[in-house]
Design a protein around this nucleic acid. Sequence first.
DNA 1: AGGGATGTTTGAAATGTTTCATACGGCGTG
DNA 2: CACGCCGTATGAAACATTTCAAACATCCCT
Lengths: 344, 344
Amino acid sequence: MVNGRTPSVKDVARSAGVSLGTVSNVMNRPEVVSPTTRERVERAMAELGFVRNESARQLRAGTSRTLAYVMLDGSNPFFHDVAQGIELAAEDADLSLFICNSNGRAEREEVHLDRLMQQRVQGILITPVNPDAPHLAEISRRGIPVVIVDRVGAGGLFCSVAVDDVLGGRIAVEHLAEQGHTRVAVVGGPESIGQVRERVEGARQIWSELGLPPEDLTYLPTAGLTVAEGRSAGERLAGIPARRRPTAAFCANDLLALGLLQQSIGAGLRVPEELAIVGFDDIEFAAAAAVPLTSVRQPRQELGRAAAQLVLDEATNPEHVHQQPLFVPELVARASTVVRSRAY
Amino acid sequence: MVNGRTPSVKDVARSAGVSLGTVSNVMNRPEVVSPTTRERVERAMAELGFVRNESARQLRAGTSRTLAYVMLDGSNPFFHDVAQGIELAAEDADLSLFICNSNGRAEREEVHLDRLMQQRVQGILITPVNPDAPHLAEISRRGIPVVIVDRVGAGGLFCSVAVDDVLGGRIAVEHLAEQGHTRVAVVGGPESIGQVRERVEGARQIWSELGLPPEDLTYLPTAGLTVAEGRSAGERLAGIPARRRPTAAFCANDLLALGLLQQSIGAGLRVPEELAIVGFDDIEFAAAAAVPLTSVRQPRQELGRAAAQLVLDEATNPEHVHQQPLFVPELVARASTVVRSRAY
DNA sequence: AGGGATGTTTGAAATGTTTCATACGGCGTG
DNA sequence: CACGCCGTATGAAACATTTCAAACATCCCT
């Protein structure tokens, strides 16, 4: 604090009457320095208000102490739950977590990845706009561990942690069929989003396996996975004549489902009696909706935690081999599909 | 890429047949280098796959290119909207944003702040557990700009950006009184949270100014600002005999309000006829609830953006003076307080 | 007394940038 | 032809750490 400049190891060394190396040892290998000098150095640090300069440390040591997560959609609580899981794992490993948000835009994603490379982060977790984008492979080739979250990376190039989205679509629609529904809407889009494609695919699979006519599974495309899009899908649904209208809807995520739910109730439809609704992700607000939402649960935090562990393994274990664990989704039935007396 | 090591300016210089300084100039002052050499250098960079080492840059230049936001509660979408506003401002200034989450725990907050100091971030935005904590002042004294978000910093030590919480409490309860309610519950806690104290205070103020008897304003304390706590408050509310039970509730934030709404509807109460509900923050899920929630709106993104601008001003403008702008909250009336025919 | 062995401290080198004073090379002018 | 000027390019120093071989001190053992 002497002359405005923030003190460096050199200042601490001078003030404690030891050499540079000793100060460094106090910070990094306290066991090799004698208790008395260690204490002297520590006192000097406290007096001067010394704060280690992480840039210098990293430059010399060559290793950074941060992970990064690039999430796909900051307005979807699902991704924050994933981030929370990553954060917990990072905390255990004494690392910081840098959180970025691409908002679904490839060019934002690339800007963030560029910066992260410049920072030489230890590893990158990402829910990518497009898991096949060449820059991801490029980063990995450079030796920075990359783990894909909530998607399966193509060709085994990366580790990835995901839920079986096809299976998720299957169990959602199977549940609706079990409830006796024979006309079902599938709501989601755009199809450029892999998760959407697979969930819809799962719905179609089970529908045909159940021997139900394909024309009774109506696909309602949306321009995004937001509450507003859900409402708009609801309007389109309401426009279908009642006798042909689906009696149930499977939405590709919970935001859509919440929007659909709100619009339908507002339009006077009873849920689930006139329209049953299933979402996907099981975010906290699904259970908290006024008609609690049936949803396909992903283990959100666990997904993040597992991904973080993989990235750390890749960063530290020379014998690391890429893995692509698939979690099994689970249907959580609530009032939006089950008439009151039978719920729980 | 030659021998595994990532290439440095030196490698680029050698490969392009120029000196170190020239390569640096290409990156930092392209206008002083002749077009032909510039192009040669750029080609070399591309060929080698050069990525600038930010640690080294920062060490030498003394200035980092990141801001940080330490948020109070990662599970509340409100703070993510604030973060989004900060991010937009950071993007304009070509800075990265480091997002941390203290989860309301002072010791986590301190760990994060420590790390941020070590990184020598350009500025810190924070919604603190306790705005009077001495370490905040200490950081500021060291020359790192600190801006308090969503609270007013004590004693004008920092810049801060907030909404007038007392006023927010006033307009919420005034609105309920206008709707004819004469028994109102105020739901929120713990009182260690400043925002809660002030919102409750505002409610009390207007209640007494309206000449209503204090015993008809029931304070229902909660242990946190979560959906679950809102449900629990709902149970306690339902336990009050109908003729003494409040006919309206003002919740200290939207998560509480959503929980209360859900519990009440589940218990068969009609909203708003039997129980009117007002929340605070106006998060996106407030409007999306099955009974859209009346809420006191905070300009969430704007809050973040303004805070970022203040921190940047403090970081770059030597004549900076601390400011504490207070935004004016605004009541957004929806169906949870206004009977259908009158809503909008 | 000599010789390890052990435990602690030292000092210099190295990390990858940016900065800045200096050198260089033409070119127009006097 | 010498001079000064201007646009470019150079190279060494500086930034704050970590690392590591070497020096030093102490003690024990023969």
